[in-house]
Amino acid sequence: MEYILHIVIMLNIYILLVLSANLPVGLANLLSICQAAFYGIGAYFSAYFLMRFQLPFIAVALIVMTLTGLCSLVVSFAPVKLKGDYFVLATLAFQMIVFTVLYNWTDVTRGPYGIPGIPSVKLFGIMSISGIYGYFILTAVLSGSVILLFRKLKFSPYGRVLTAIRSDELSVSALGRNPVHFKTWAFFISAGFSGLAGLIYASYISYIDPTSFTLDESIFILTALFIGGIGNVKGPVLGALFVVVTPEILRFVGLPDAVAANLRQIIYGLTLVLIMYLRPQGLWGKITLK
Protein backbone atom coordinates (compact mmCIF):
# COMPACT_ATOMS: atom_id res chain seq x y z
CA MET A 1 0.00 0.00 0.00
CA GLU A 2 2.71 2.46 1.00
CA TYR A 3 4.51 1.65 -2.21
CA ILE A 4 1.47 2.60 -4.25
CA LEU A 5 0.97 5.79 -2.25
CA HIS A 6 4.59 6.73 -2.86
CA ILE A 7 4.10 6.33 -6.59
CA VAL A 8 0.96 8.43 -6.49
CA ILE A 9 2.80 11.17 -4.59
CA MET A 10 5.59 11.16 -7.18
CA LEU A 11 2.95 11.19 -9.89
CA ASN A 12 1.35 14.27 -8.34
CA ILE A 13 4.71 16.00 -8.22
CA TYR A 14 5.28 15.21 -11.89
CA ILE A 15 1.82 16.44 -12.78
CA LEU A 16 2.85 19.80 -11.34
CA LEU A 17 6.12 19.73 -13.28
CA VAL A 18 4.71 18.66 -16.63
CA LEU A 19 1.71 20.99 -16.44
CA SER A 20 4.08 23.85 -15.62
CA ALA A 21 6.24 22.97 -18.61
CA ASN A 22 3.16 22.96 -20.82
CA LEU A 23 2.51 26.65 -20.22
CA PRO A 24 5.65 27.92 -21.98
CA VAL A 25 6.32 24.92 -24.23
CA GLY A 26 2.79 23.94 -25.22
CA LEU A 27 1.08 27.29 -25.25
CA ALA A 28 3.60 30.09 -25.60
CA ASN A 29 5.98 28.45 -28.07
CA LEU A 30 8.93 28.65 -25.68
CA LEU A 31 10.95 25.45 -25.70
CA SER A 32 12.30 25.64 -22.17
CA ILE A 33 14.95 23.09 -21.23
CA CYS A 34 15.52 24.43 -17.73
CA GLN A 35 12.33 23.27 -16.00
CA ALA A 36 14.38 21.06 -13.66
CA ALA A 37 16.47 24.09 -12.71
CA PHE A 38 13.32 25.78 -11.40
CA TYR A 39 12.34 22.53 -9.68
CA GLY A 40 15.77 22.55 -7.99
CA ILE A 41 15.71 26.24 -7.13
CA GLY A 42 12.32 25.68 -5.49
CA ALA A 43 13.63 22.68 -3.58
CA TYR A 44 16.70 24.50 -2.27
CA PHE A 45 14.78 27.65 -1.30
CA SER A 46 12.27 25.38 0.46
CA ALA A 47 15.01 23.59 2.37
CA TYR A 48 16.26 26.97 3.58
CA PHE A 49 12.87 28.30 4.68
CA LEU A 50 11.65 25.05 6.21
CA MET A 51 14.85 24.56 8.23
CA ARG A 52 15.13 28.18 9.39
CA PHE A 53 11.58 29.28 10.06
CA GLN A 54 8.36 27.83 11.38
CA LEU A 55 6.08 29.05 8.64
CA PRO A 56 2.72 27.64 7.59
CA PHE A 57 2.69 25.74 4.30
CA ILE A 58 0.82 28.46 2.41
CA ALA A 59 3.43 31.05 3.38
CA VAL A 60 6.38 28.87 2.39
CA ALA A 61 4.66 27.97 -0.85
CA LEU A 62 3.99 31.59 -1.78
CA ILE A 63 7.53 32.68 -0.91
CA VAL A 64 9.15 29.81 -2.80
CA MET A 65 6.92 30.23 -5.85
CA THR A 66 7.57 33.95 -6.01
CA LEU A 67 11.33 33.59 -5.60
CA THR A 68 11.50 30.85 -8.21
CA GLY A 69 9.32 32.91 -10.52
CA LEU A 70 11.69 35.84 -10.10
CA CYS A 71 14.60 33.60 -11.11
CA SER A 72 12.82 33.01 -14.43
CA LEU A 73 13.29 36.70 -15.18
CA VAL A 74 17.01 36.08 -15.53
CA VAL A 75 16.16 34.22 -18.72
CA SER A 76 13.23 36.40 -19.77
CA PHE A 77 15.20 39.61 -19.49
CA ALA A 78 18.25 38.23 -21.26
CA PRO A 79 18.60 40.16 -24.51
CA VAL A 80 17.00 37.38 -26.54
CA LYS A 81 13.42 38.63 -26.20
CA LEU A 82 12.01 35.16 -25.57
CA LYS A 83 12.40 34.01 -29.13
CA GLY A 84 13.08 30.78 -30.94
CA ASP A 85 16.47 29.13 -30.88
CA TYR A 86 18.03 31.86 -28.76
CA PHE A 87 15.54 31.15 -26.03
CA VAL A 88 16.38 27.45 -26.12
CA LEU A 89 20.06 28.28 -25.75
CA ALA A 90 19.35 30.73 -22.93
CA THR A 91 17.42 28.08 -21.00
CA LEU A 92 20.16 25.55 -21.64
CA ALA A 93 22.71 27.98 -20.23
CA PHE A 94 20.50 28.71 -17.25
CA GLN A 95 20.06 24.99 -16.55
CA MET A 96 23.80 24.42 -16.63
CA ILE A 97 24.59 27.42 -14.47
CA VAL A 98 22.00 26.50 -11.83
CA PHE A 99 23.30 22.95 -11.65
CA THR A 100 26.88 24.16 -11.37
CA VAL A 101 25.96 26.54 -8.58
CA LEU A 102 24.03 23.87 -6.66
CA TYR A 103 26.90 21.46 -7.10
CA ASN A 104 29.84 23.74 -6.34
CA TRP A 105 28.67 26.43 -3.96
CA THR A 106 29.28 24.07 -1.09
CA ASP A 107 29.11 26.70 1.68
CA VAL A 108 25.46 27.20 0.95
CA THR A 109 24.21 24.05 -0.75
CA ARG A 110 26.64 21.50 0.66
CA GLY A 111 27.28 20.57 -2.97
CA PRO A 112 27.22 16.87 -3.80
CA TYR A 113 26.55 15.92 -0.16
CA GLY A 114 23.08 17.41 -0.45
CA ILE A 115 20.90 18.68 2.34
CA PRO A 116 19.47 16.10 4.74
CA GLY A 117 16.88 16.51 7.48
CA ILE A 118 14.47 18.85 5.74
CA PRO A 119 11.38 19.08 7.96
CA SER A 120 7.85 18.37 6.80
CA VAL A 121 5.54 21.21 5.91
CA LYS A 122 3.15 22.52 8.56
CA LEU A 123 -0.34 23.06 7.33
CA PHE A 124 -1.40 25.98 9.56
CA GLY A 125 1.89 26.54 11.29
CA ILE A 126 1.13 23.82 13.80
CA MET A 127 -0.35 20.76 12.19
CA SER A 128 2.63 19.02 10.71
CA ILE A 129 1.95 17.06 7.54
CA SER A 130 3.92 13.96 7.88
CA GLY A 131 4.08 10.41 6.80
CA ILE A 132 3.07 9.02 3.52
CA TYR A 133 -0.67 9.42 4.10
CA GLY A 134 -0.34 13.10 4.89
CA TYR A 135 1.66 13.71 1.73
CA PHE A 136 -0.70 11.60 -0.31
CA ILE A 137 -3.60 13.84 0.67
CA LEU A 138 -1.60 17.08 0.36
CA THR A 139 -0.25 16.29 -3.10
CA ALA A 140 -3.58 14.98 -4.35
CA VAL A 141 -5.31 18.19 -3.30
CA LEU A 142 -2.51 20.28 -4.78
CA SER A 143 -2.31 18.54 -8.11
CA GLY A 144 -6.11 18.54 -8.36
CA SER A 145 -6.21 22.29 -7.73
CA VAL A 146 -3.38 22.96 -10.13
CA ILE A 147 -5.10 20.93 -12.85
CA LEU A 148 -8.23 23.05 -12.38
CA LEU A 149 -6.21 26.24 -12.27
CA PHE A 150 -4.35 25.50 -15.49
CA ARG A 151 -7.60 24.52 -17.19
CA LYS A 152 -9.07 27.86 -16.18
CA LEU A 153 -6.01 29.69 -17.38
CA LYS A 154 -6.05 27.88 -20.71
CA PHE A 155 -9.67 28.90 -21.35
CA SER A 156 -9.25 32.43 -20.00
CA PRO A 157 -8.58 35.51 -22.14
CA TYR A 158 -4.92 35.09 -21.15
CA GLY A 159 -4.87 31.54 -22.51
CA ARG A 160 -6.43 32.81 -25.70
CA VAL A 161 -3.53 35.21 -26.27
CA LEU A 162 -0.97 32.47 -25.56
CA THR A 163 -2.66 30.10 -28.00
CA ALA A 164 -2.58 32.83 -30.63
CA ILE A 165 1.09 33.53 -29.95
CA ARG A 166 1.84 29.90 -30.62
CA SER A 167 0.46 30.08 -34.14
CA ASP A 168 1.26 33.65 -35.21
CA GLU A 169 3.19 36.03 -33.03
CA LEU A 170 3.37 38.85 -35.58
CA SER A 171 -0.39 39.06 -35.89
CA VAL A 172 -0.72 39.15 -32.10
CA SER A 173 1.52 42.20 -31.89
CA ALA A 174 -0.20 43.85 -34.85
CA LEU A 175 -3.43 43.53 -32.85
CA GLY A 176 -1.93 45.55 -30.02
CA ARG A 177 -0.76 42.80 -27.65
CA ASN A 178 2.90 42.59 -26.78
CA PRO A 179 3.89 38.90 -27.01
CA VAL A 180 6.96 39.38 -24.80
CA HIS A 181 4.75 40.49 -21.93
CA PHE A 182 2.54 37.40 -22.18
CA LYS A 183 5.46 35.03 -22.59
CA THR A 184 7.28 36.50 -19.62
CA TRP A 185 4.26 35.79 -17.43
CA ALA A 186 3.88 32.28 -18.84
CA PHE A 187 7.49 31.52 -18.03
CA PHE A 188 7.20 33.15 -14.60
CA ILE A 189 4.12 31.12 -13.65
CA SER A 190 5.72 27.97 -15.01
CA ALA A 191 8.82 28.54 -12.90
CA GLY A 192 6.68 29.28 -9.85
CA PHE A 193 4.75 26.03 -10.05
CA SER A 194 7.90 24.03 -10.78
CA GLY A 195 9.26 25.61 -7.59
CA LEU A 196 6.16 24.43 -5.76
CA ALA A 197 6.89 20.90 -7.00
CA GLY A 198 10.39 21.39 -5.58
CA LEU A 199 8.93 22.34 -2.20
CA ILE A 200 6.76 19.24 -2.06
CA TYR A 201 9.62 17.01 -3.15
CA ALA A 202 12.15 18.46 -0.69
CA SER A 203 9.85 18.22 2.31
CA TYR A 204 8.48 14.81 1.36
CA ILE A 205 11.80 13.09 0.70
CA SER A 206 13.48 15.28 3.39
CA TYR A 207 16.78 15.11 1.50
CA ILE A 208 17.87 16.87 -1.68
CA ASP A 209 21.01 16.92 -3.75
CA PRO A 210 21.86 18.47 -7.12
CA THR A 211 21.55 15.23 -9.10
CA SER A 212 17.75 15.43 -8.98
CA PHE A 213 17.77 18.70 -10.91
CA THR A 214 19.95 18.05 -13.94
CA LEU A 215 19.55 18.70 -17.64
CA ASP A 216 18.50 15.03 -17.86
CA GLU A 217 15.62 15.78 -15.56
CA SER A 218 14.57 18.77 -17.69
CA ILE A 219 14.57 16.55 -20.75
CA PHE A 220 12.65 13.90 -18.84
CA ILE A 221 9.92 16.46 -18.05
CA LEU A 222 9.75 17.47 -21.72
CA THR A 223 9.61 13.80 -22.73
CA ALA A 224 6.56 13.35 -20.53
CA LEU A 225 5.01 16.46 -22.04
CA PHE A 226 5.59 15.43 -25.65
CA ILE A 227 4.42 11.88 -25.03
CA GLY A 228 1.24 13.10 -23.38
CA GLY A 229 0.69 15.92 -25.81
CA ILE A 230 0.95 19.67 -25.60
CA GLY A 231 -1.54 22.48 -25.47
CA ASN A 232 -4.30 21.09 -23.31
CA VAL A 233 -4.42 19.91 -19.70
CA LYS A 234 -5.22 16.25 -20.23
CA GLY A 235 -2.08 15.62 -22.31
CA PRO A 236 0.46 16.70 -19.67
CA VAL A 237 -1.38 14.88 -16.88
CA LEU A 238 -1.47 11.62 -18.80
CA GLY A 239 2.11 12.16 -19.96
CA ALA A 240 3.18 12.38 -16.32
CA LEU A 241 1.24 9.21 -15.61
CA PHE A 242 3.02 7.44 -18.47
CA VAL A 243 6.54 8.29 -17.37
CA VAL A 244 5.93 7.63 -13.68
CA VAL A 245 4.11 4.33 -14.11
CA THR A 246 6.17 2.78 -16.93
CA PRO A 247 9.26 2.09 -14.75
CA GLU A 248 7.09 0.61 -12.04
CA ILE A 249 5.53 -1.79 -14.50
CA LEU A 250 8.99 -2.82 -15.67
CA ARG A 251 9.99 -3.44 -12.07
CA PHE A 252 6.78 -5.37 -11.49
CA VAL A 253 7.57 -7.60 -14.44
CA GLY A 254 10.70 -8.49 -12.50
CA LEU A 255 13.48 -7.19 -14.71
CA PRO A 256 16.76 -6.55 -12.92
CA ASP A 257 17.29 -2.84 -12.20
CA ALA A 258 20.19 -2.41 -14.62
CA VAL A 259 18.19 -3.84 -17.51
CA ALA A 260 15.03 -2.00 -16.52
CA ALA A 261 16.79 1.37 -16.45
CA ASN A 262 18.02 0.93 -20.02
CA LEU A 263 14.78 -0.54 -21.23
CA ARG A 264 12.93 2.44 -19.76
CA GLN A 265 15.02 4.89 -21.80
CA ILE A 266 14.43 2.80 -24.90
CA ILE A 267 10.69 2.74 -24.29
CA TYR A 268 10.57 6.53 -23.89
CA GLY A 269 12.68 6.99 -26.99
CA LEU A 270 10.62 4.61 -29.08
CA THR A 271 7.40 6.15 -27.85
CA LEU A 272 8.61 9.58 -28.91
CA VAL A 273 9.59 8.34 -32.35
CA LEU A 274 6.29 6.52 -32.78
CA ILE A 275 4.44 9.63 -31.70
CA MET A 276 6.18 11.69 -34.36
CA TYR A 277 5.02 9.22 -36.99
CA LEU A 278 1.60 8.23 -35.74
CA ARG A 279 0.24 10.92 -33.44
CA PRO A 280 2.07 14.23 -33.75
CA GLN A 281 -0.29 15.74 -31.21
CA GLY A 282 0.93 13.31 -28.53
CA LEU A 283 -1.19 10.58 -26.98
CA TRP A 284 -3.83 12.92 -25.63
CA GLY A 285 -2.77 16.36 -26.75
CA LYS A 286 -4.54 18.89 -28.86
CA ILE A 287 -1.86 20.67 -30.81
CA THR A 288 0.06 19.00 -33.60
CA LEU A 289 3.83 19.34 -33.51
CA LYS A 290 5.42 21.06 -36.44
Binding site: L149, K152, S156, P157
Partner: peptide, 10 residues
Protein backbone atom coordinates in the same frame (compact mmCIF):
# COMPACT_ATOMS: atom_id res chain seq x y z
CA UNK B 1 -7.25 44.09 -23.80
CA UNK B 2 -7.84 44.50 -20.09
CA UNK B 3 -8.69 41.14 -18.60
CA UNK B 4 -5.98 39.38 -20.57
CA UNK B 5 -3.47 39.31 -17.75
CA UNK B 6 -3.14 35.89 -16.11
CA UNK B 7 -4.17 37.09 -12.66
CA UNK B 8 -7.04 39.41 -13.46
CA UNK B 9 -9.10 36.42 -14.49
CA UNK B 10 -8.54 34.64 -11.21
Amino acid sequence: SSGESPFSYL
